[in-house]
Design a protein around this nucleic acid. Structure first.
Length: 204
DNA sequence: AACTCGGGGCA
DNA sequence: TGCCCAGAGTT
């Protein structure tokens, strides 16, 4: 089943990437990306990275100033608090180096399962597919992963997506989940995957 | 399992 | 103008 190939052909202009130059920048950008889009994050990081170029500067930021720096993004109070704390943990426990393990990344406040996988796959080239609510729902409907956990969904997706696409796959799956395979009233008529989809077969 | 954070996107 | 959410933490 060529899911990703079909999605790429269907959404050729999908917005696909956070701008980053090193693991630290990708970690910060990905923590910021919760409940918003990469487009919004890139607007903020353009000014944020020169101002806080490494975990050291981040750990020394004041709450008020960092909040102001990311105010155009939602959830900015939680995110600024988490980022400062993350900066301090990086300095105190990881010697200012971004950890390249899932366990290490998930010790950082603001970084969960999805953030860890994005950083592992895109900054360290470690095999992983990021699974968020959209990816989870799309996979369930396709019938790949009923009743499974997000970690198990990740394993299932890795079986049917070419390895070279793992680090970017979530962008197309998320886009598809938002615009077509929506949580409510999915638009199965315009879905390129409907012929392969359990949800569609069961509801028609 | 439900609630919270929040500006932006979309109907 | 009102509703929902490209997660993660807390209770």
């Amino acid at each position: 089943m060529k899911i990703l190939k079909l999605l790429k052909e269907t959404y050729p202009d999908v917005e696909t990437a956070l701008d980053f130059e090193n693991p630290y920048q990708l970690l910060v950008a990905t923590i910021l990306s919760a409940q918003t889009t990469d487009i919004q994050v890139n607007k903020v990081t353009n000014n944020l990275f020169p101002k806080y170029p490494s975990p050291k500067e981040l750990s020394e930021a004041t709450q008020e100033e960092l909040e102001n720096d990311i105010k155009t993004i939602g959830l900015y109070k939680n995110k600024s608090k988490n980022l400062i704390k993350t900066g301090k943990i990086l300095m105190e426990k990881f010697n200012g180096v971004i950890p390249d393990t899932r366990e290490g990344l998930m010790e950082l406040p603001g970084a969960g399962r999805k953030t860890a996988n994005v950083v592992l796959s895109n900054a360290f080239n470690i095999p992983a597919i990021a699974v968020d609510t959209h990816v989870f729902r799309v996979s369930r409907r396709l019938g790949l992963s009923q009743g499974k956990t997000p970690d198990e969904v990740e394993q299932d997706l890795m079986k049917i997506i070419p390895k070279e696409d793992w680090k970017d796959a979530h962008h197309w799956l998320i886009w598809h989940g938002r615009l077509v395979c929506k949580a409510q009233n999915p638009n199965c008529q315009s879905c390129p995957l409907s012929s392969e989809c359990c949800f569609f077969q069961n509801s028609h």
